[in-house]
């Protein structure tokens, strides 16, 4: 019988699926076109900002887990695995932020890419966390790998607030955030606001499901390594017995 945690992950997965389908349906067929956005491009707003939001949540979780790993009282390899799982999902969502942003930029700004502060710092964020994931794969003692990865995650996270505030700090081609988390203000209303909110919730649930699955996969890999070691020890002992 599946455990409570396993059933909860399954439930989150189904809720995310239903939420994402509803967001797509509302975003493409129900919400009205907005004035000032050519060809109904406003519909990209129901997926693009949630992608960026989820990436921030994922990196926030990686930051927190890394901090807990580095703190001597809470040091546990489970935090290291959670940081790795969350960062990997974050990289997927950052990639999608860049692609959907590019698809927004081509018809509105006339270019696929420009070295705008927001775009540049987001691309940097993507590269930083790709580097973090590469660092995790460098062979070594598991605790040493976890320690240096945790430090790398803390350093990489410095770019997250820079990305968010870049539109306010520098003159940017990108418009101000549609959702102002600092002033708690949403710059869309009615069905558009509800659809966007649903997008934020659904993709956050999708993130939670993916991170839980990726974490479980990492735990299984550790279990597999342990089993492999036990197997090797057993074989070595058997060989020794034969020689004796």
């Amino acid at each position: 019988m599946p455990s409570l945690r396993s059933r909860l992950v399954t439930l989150v997965g189904w809720l995310a699926l239903v939420g994402v389908i509803a967001t797509v349906w509302l975003g493409l067929f129900v919400t009205p076109d907005a004035v000032g956005f050519p060809d109904g491009l406003v519909r990209l707003l129901y997926v693009h900002p949630p992608m960026a939001w989820v990436a921030f949540v994922a990196y926030g979780m990686a930051f927190l887990s890394s901090l807990l790993y580095l703190w001597p009282r809470t040091r546990d390899m489970r935090f290291d695995r959670l940081a790795g799982a969350s960062a990997e999902v974050g990289v997927v969502f950052t990639g999608l932020t860049l692609v959907t942003g590019s698809l927004w930029g081509r018809p509105t700004w006339g270019v696929w890419w420009t070295w705008d502060p927001l775009l540049t710092t987001t691309a940097l964020l993507f590269v930083l966390y790709l580097g973090y994931l590469a660092l995790r794969r460098v062979p070594g003692d598991p605790e040493a790998v976890a320690g240096r990865s945790a430090i790398a995650a803390l350093i990489a996270f410095v770019d997250v607030p820079v990305v968010y505030f870049s539109v306010s700090w520098w003159r940017s081609l990108h418009q101000a955030p549609t959702v102002d988390f600092t002033g708690r203000h949403l710059y869309v209303h009615g069905s558009m606001a509800w659809t966007m909110l649903l997008g934020f919730v659904s993709f956050t649930l999708a993130y939670a499901w993916m991170t839980a699955r990726r974490y479980r996969l990492a735990s299984l890999a550790v279990q597999q390594e342990d089993e492999g070691l036990a197997h090797a020890i057993a074989e070595r002992r058997a060989e020794g017995r034969v020689l004796v």
Partner: peptide, 21 residues
Amino acid sequence: MSPYIEAGYAVVLATLGVYAA
């Protein structure tokens, strides 16, 4: 509907679907 919107939704759904699978 603009092809950019269709491409945006398709990329998001396909990527997340493939990653989840």
